[in-house]
Amino acid sequence: MSDATLVQPRTEFLRGFSMRDAGTLIGLIVILAVFGALVPGFFAERNLINILQQSSINACLALGMTQVIISGGIDLSVGPTAALSAVISASMMVAGVPFPLAVGAGFAIGLLCGLVNGILVAHVGLQPFIVTLGTLSTYRALALIYTGGNPVLGLPAGFRAIFNSSLFGLPLAVIIVAFVAIAAWIVLKKTPFGEYLLAVGGNEEAAYIAGVPIARTKIAAYMISGLLAALAAQILIGRLGAAEPILGNLWELDAIAAAAIGGASLMGGKGSVVGTILGAVILGAMRNGLTLMNVQSFYQLLATGLIILAAMLIDRVTRGRG
């Protein structure tokens, strides 16, 4: 084989993969430019860090959501999964359990919630939308029943200090999510699991005949989503110092929006870690800018809706040109 044949595909590879991400990046730049012009102090270092911090929880959830969406599914239960994880971790800490153990238990709850979703989808064969709609209510109910509807207050200072700390001037939450993003990128691009995910979502029948472990792949995607929901929950209760059973309401919609803006297709088989992160930052930057402009929350909602629709329209118009 000649070297020429090995070199050419490489440019093809870069072109094919970064085009959609470049589009999302342009979208982010446009939004930053608009707010930079309209809002004094928008580009202040402190505000930019604020945007990242405010985007971090949604980005964390959206990274898990991206895996599930690529597999051809959807996870509507991330908010209640986070709530259940949060109240259980918090009540353990309040009861005096060392916090690494309590946090570990919270992660285990997240994995368990994802496992239940995954089994119902992959082994029982139910539709992902309906399964996670059902567990959305179920997990929320469990969190409410467990706490009697009351917030769990008085988290230990040591735990709170960790999640409120900064490294190199960046909040720990941002750094954690950055690591998660790198890990997610590696998983998607560099591991067999990533290839399986794209294949299962892209053509399940063909993937099955090619020997891809369909059920295992799908279950793993839901478990990753559950785990990242639990991580988001720990970040939030660390910041707030309390865990409410109703936390994470409508988180799933922001996460889906970030993934979709970033180029994930709800038909499955398509999605990008870089795009999802950019999508989450777009949503975060927009909310931050509108808040600084003192725009009523009604209009923030409107802006969110329009951005999602605009991203999808641009997607539709540019598709089929590659």
């Binding site: 591991t191 067999p192 290839e195 794209l198 294949a199 053509n203 088989g269």
Partner: peptide, 26 residues
């Protein structure tokens, strides 16, 4: 047969992914 959006290489490797990732990373 095919996963349409994926490359020739990915489609080809689908049945032997574990061979190409002896340590978990492709």
């Amino acid at each position: 047969g095919i996963v349409p959006l994926r490359s020739i290489t990915s489609n080809m490797a689908l049945a032997s992914m574990s061979v190409f990732a002896p340590h978990g990373i492709i």
